[in-house]
């Protein structure tokens, strides 16, 4: 026998459907958790004291960048990440990585990697942990100095992804044999001294001195990411496969998916910046002038990677790979309607 409880409640009509500022923006409808967590959250006015570390700005200030928006919340993250959905998505993404590590360990896949090839891999892949780490620093800067929670929150999560990438490269390196001594010290030495990385390192060190968060996003998300990810995780991975090494393709896919995921907010943001009714034109001037510079620099920087294409077994065609990378970049810039000469 079951006991049934029937709770008779009055239907209580909500007094409001959402926070006042969301009702004002979106009309009389309930808001999503993403909107509640994001829109109009950042403080705007009546700041009490001026920063001691920089003259002429307020705590939050549109003047931290040349890029401006009439309404900073005209940009919203197409993925609608707020803290919970971001972390839950990444936890899920990473479950697959964990499983794959388990699989590789069980089958001894890391130890079986051909030693000659490993030298190549250690040279071009492991030092990228430093590049990802720099990306973390750059993006967390955007998370501080950007304007409006919808933008800065995306940068914060992107920063976290970058740090996660750096740690994942580290974790992969852990699993690899070390015929030539400490893999991390070698990778750092490669990053600091090997000619393939010097233009890239110079580029990123200079970018780390830039204060304008808009410029940082152009240099990082629209330039470094757009060139390095297809080069490493598509072109070089294809070449690895052609050389009989398939162990790392899974990771390449993961890194590339991470890149694509972050490009979703990046592209949307730039789309909004370029189409702003008041600042669109100025934004375009700034973006095109900076991106022409950064894309040019990064394009030159990756030319040094030609050396990496001299694989132990099957040599790769760097020229073709570079053309693919450039086409990818042209596609990204073309979609945004940007006039970039690369």
């Amino acid at each position: 026998m079951s006991v049934q409880y029937e709770i008779k409640q009055k239907v209580i009509e909500p007094k409001r459907l959402a926070f006042d500022y969301l009702l004002k923006r979106y009309g009389n409808r309930p808001a999503s958790r993403y909107e509640e967590a994001t829109v109009d959250i950042q403080q705007r006015e009546n700041f009490h004291y001026r920063p001691t570390w920089r003259e002429g700005v307020e705590i939050f200030d549109v003047n931290y960048s040349e890029l401006k928006l009439t309404d900073y919340y005209s940009f919203l993250d197409p993925r609608q990440y707020y803290y919970y959905t971001y972390n839950a998505t990444r936890a899920k993404n990473y479950e697959a990585v964990d499983k794959y590590f388990e699989f590789c360990e069980e089958r001894g896949l890391f130890e079986k990697v051909n030693e000659d090839w490993l030298k190549v891999f250690n040279r071009y892949f492991i030092p990228l942990r430093h590049l990802e780490y720099a990306g973390w620093i750059l993006l967390v800067g955007v998370a501080r100095f950007g304007y409006g929670t919808s933008i800065t929150q995306c940068a914060e999560f992107n920063a976290c992804d970058k740090y996660g990438n750096a740690q994942l490269i580290t974790r992969i390196a852990f699993e690899l044999p070390e015929p030539d001594g400490d893999i991390f010290e070698n990778a750092k030495k490669t990053w600091l001294e090997d000619k393939i990385f010097q233009p890239l390192r110079e580029y990123v060190e200079k970018l780390l001195t830039i204060q304008d968060w808009g410029e940082v996003l152009i240099g990082q998300n629209l330039a470094i990411d757009v060139f390095v990810n297809p080069l490493v995780h598509i072109e070089l991975d294809n070449l690895a496969v052609e050389n009989g090494v398939t162990t790392f393709s899974f990771f390449s896919k993961y890194f590339y998916d991470m890149y694509k995921d972050n490009m979703r907010w990046t592209e949307k943001l730039f789309e909004v910046l370029l189409s702003d009714p008041n600042y669109g034109e100025n934004n375009r001037k700034f973006i095109e002038s900076k991106l022409n510079y950064y894309a040019g620099q990064i394009s030159k920087a990756i030319d040094e990677f030609a050396d990496v294409f001299k694989m132990p077994k099957k040599k790769g065609d760097f020229k073709k790979a570079k053309e693919n990378v450039l086409n990818h970049a042209r596609e990204v810039y073309g979609k945004l309607g940007l006039n970039i000469k690369i």
């Binding site: 209580i12 909500p14 007094k15 409001r16 459907l17 959402a18 926070f19 006042d20 500022y21 808001a31 958790r33 509640e36 967590a37 109009d40 959250i41 950042q42 403080q43 707020y82 803290y83 919970y84």
Partner: peptide
């Protein structure tokens, strides 16, 4: 910030004082 906003959101539907916290 976000879990507190989300917890407050439900109260905002039925009670005063929650509707405009950032402003």
């Amino acid at each position: 910030t976000q879990i507190e906003v989300h917890a407050g959101s439900n109260f905002n539907k039925y009670y005063d004082g929650f509707h405009s916290m950032t402003l």
